[in-house]
Amino acid sequence: MSGNTNASLFEFLLRQGDNTLVLGQRLSEWCGHGPVLEEDIALANIALDLVGQTQLWLALACEVEGTGRSADDLAMLRDVWDFRNLLLVEQPNRDFGMTILRQFLFDQWHLLQLHALAESSEDRVAAIATKAEREVRYHVERSSEAVIALGDGTEESHGRMQGALDRLTPYIGEMFEADAVDAALVRDGVAPEPARLKPAYDSAVAAVLSEATLSMPSVPVAQTGGRSGKRHTEHLGHMLTQMQWLQRAYPGAEW
């Protein structure tokens, strides 16, 4: 592998691991606060799957980087500008409807992406994707059902879900943008062209939204900058202070 290819692969693995890490952390914030016990347990379980997948992606990132950093180092000792997650997943939980809608928009994309990555020319990427895809099928099933139940629910729940959709739609576009890292990965057969996933995503999302009686607003400009690391929203820094404080205050502390 050339240095350039290695650098692209490392960047890609950060994007993968940071998406699941940041969303997993967000969902963990619900632990003990879910509206009913079953939902609380479900959110915690999905968080657990995502954090587990993070360990796989970031451990591979460290292996590719080869400087001796660990997955924990990447998760706990990097600053906001080093994170490569989509802006969507760092958005705050707000109410339960917003959390579910954010999850739904991510899950639908996540499943399609993992399905494509299962065919990756990089065996280690394909192995993680194959494993994660099985878990994410359950995530998609649940978030889709919840979006339908709440969207096509009461006047109150419908209004909140439509409000959540209006608020989060600008963050969808980032999933399908591509840069030099993506070009290198596509060339090597490691990852699919992001835009290739868009038609399937649009139709899967539209089908659920229609059943949920929600309408997708038209958004002229997508909010981007998370996966490239150029510009995160202010929310990520606040989240990291919570997530990282122990390792920052007591360097090297172990469980």
Partner: peptide, 28 residues
Amino acid sequence: VSQFGSTPCKAQWRCESCLEPFDFFKCI
């Protein structure tokens, strides 16, 4: 009851006959 349960590998179900809740080991 819910596709997610007490551990990552289980879902929560309920019997409508004996009315007892139970875990289902979900397929993966």
